[in-house]
Design a protein around this nucleic acid. Structure first.
Lengths: 212, 212
DNA sequence: TTGACAACATACTAATTAGTATGTAATGCT
DNA sequence: AGCATTACATACTAATTAGTATGTTGTCAA
């Protein structure tokens, strides 16, 4: 057996440290907001120190940008886009994913809202670069959603006159809105109410009332 | 002519000072977020000083609570509920108000989002008392919206099997969602897209396709 | 008119914070 | 093996911050 290409145990690993910091930072920002979190808070929950932090990120804002690009964007794809591929009718997939990831989510996490939406609401007006990164993430979500809706249209699940991009905007808006409402109100029953209304909307743009 | 009940000019006025502080604080929090604003920031934009601030509010959080109760709640009623009274079909009123207050709003302000939603997203998980106050404000909005929807149902504008409370939740969710999306994305055209989708939803719960 | 209190103003403090300066040891290349 | 460099650790700083302590003056009732 030859020596493994990547050394298996080393006490210093730039990538691994970056991931560790970002993972902790994600949860801290998720719970307290970007402006409510201190770098000392973050490194304290890490096996690393401030030196490691500033070796990775020039400033706190740069860490925030990395959060968007390296944590949140992949998370959107993984949680909201990829799962749609296995549904013949993407509209079914969208509703099913919302039911799973929002409707059946641990209330403890639901109270924290949506990581992307939280940052959009808090940081978009505060920092321009933040706004740009968040905008890119949002548009990624919308564009990928649009592709699935185009597929739905092609497969005959949507009425032919439906503007898929327009629907994509509404659907992503609904995701954010659902999270926001469930964060503000405490009643888990509210998801069912919102869900039922969204289903009605889907029905009104679907070709066959049979499906959805 | 008798003497006026309230003395016209006095250099010290508890109520007036409170309003002055809250007005400035509202804009500061609206632009920078609650955690992003300092009390020094606020009093600097006022004709008063820190002494006046802490004479009114025991802590920064208490000022935040006052913002919700004394500024934001009345604003919701004034901007989103009261105007509906003059519409025979409340659904028309809801759409018209959204067009006026969101679709035709100054982009400068649109970028700042919705004062209530901003605080919900930022402060709900951070402070329990904040969460309670914001929850009350949200439920006020929903309940008042529900009353108008009940009126719509009674007047025959809604299908008889429509759950008005459920619709009220969806409508308020849409308000917050619209604001959130327009804050995150920069394209003003997006309002039209969201608006068109909401209109479709309204159509699907309306009795006569003629209206709305 | 005059106190007494309310409505502020001013000056200060202790804690927190982002960021820096500098030191040190692990790693990898030759 | 040795050495340069990277990947951190430690200690510090200057600025900001919420909150306090105390002083001052306008207001109003008697």
């Amino acid at each position: 057996m030859k020596t493994k290409p990547q050394s298996p145990k080393k006490s210093r690993n730039l990538e691994k440290s970056r991931k560790e910091i970002l993972e902790v930072a994600f949860m801290e920002v998720f719970t307290k907001g970007f402006q409510g979190v201190s770098i000392d808070d973050i490194v304290a929950k890490t096996n690393l120190t401030k030196g490691a932090f500033y070796h990775q990120f020039p400033t706190k804002l740069d860490m925030g940008y990395a959060l968007v690009d390296e944590v949140i964007k992949p998370m959107i794809i993984e949680r909201w886009i990829k799962p749609l591929e296995s549904y013949e009718n993407p509209l079914d997939g969208i509703l099913a994913q919302m039911k799973t990831l929002i409707g059946e989510a641990d209330p403890k996490y639901l109270k924290l809202g949506c990581p992307l939406n939280n940052l959009v609401q808090e940081m978009s007006p505060v920092d321009k670069e933040f706004h740009i990164r968040l905008q890119i993430a949002l548009n990624l979500w919308i564009d990928e959603m649009d592709l699935h809706l185009k597929r739905a249209k092609k497969s005959g699940y949507l009425k032919p006159d439906v503007n898929t991009k327009q629907v994509a905007h509404f659907v992503v808006m609904a995701h954010e809105g659902f999270y926001g409402m469930l964060k503000g109100l405490d009643d888990p029953k509210i998801f069912s109410a919102l869900y039922a209304s969204l289903k009605l909307y889907f029905k009104s743009i679907s070709k066959n009332a049979r499906s959805v």
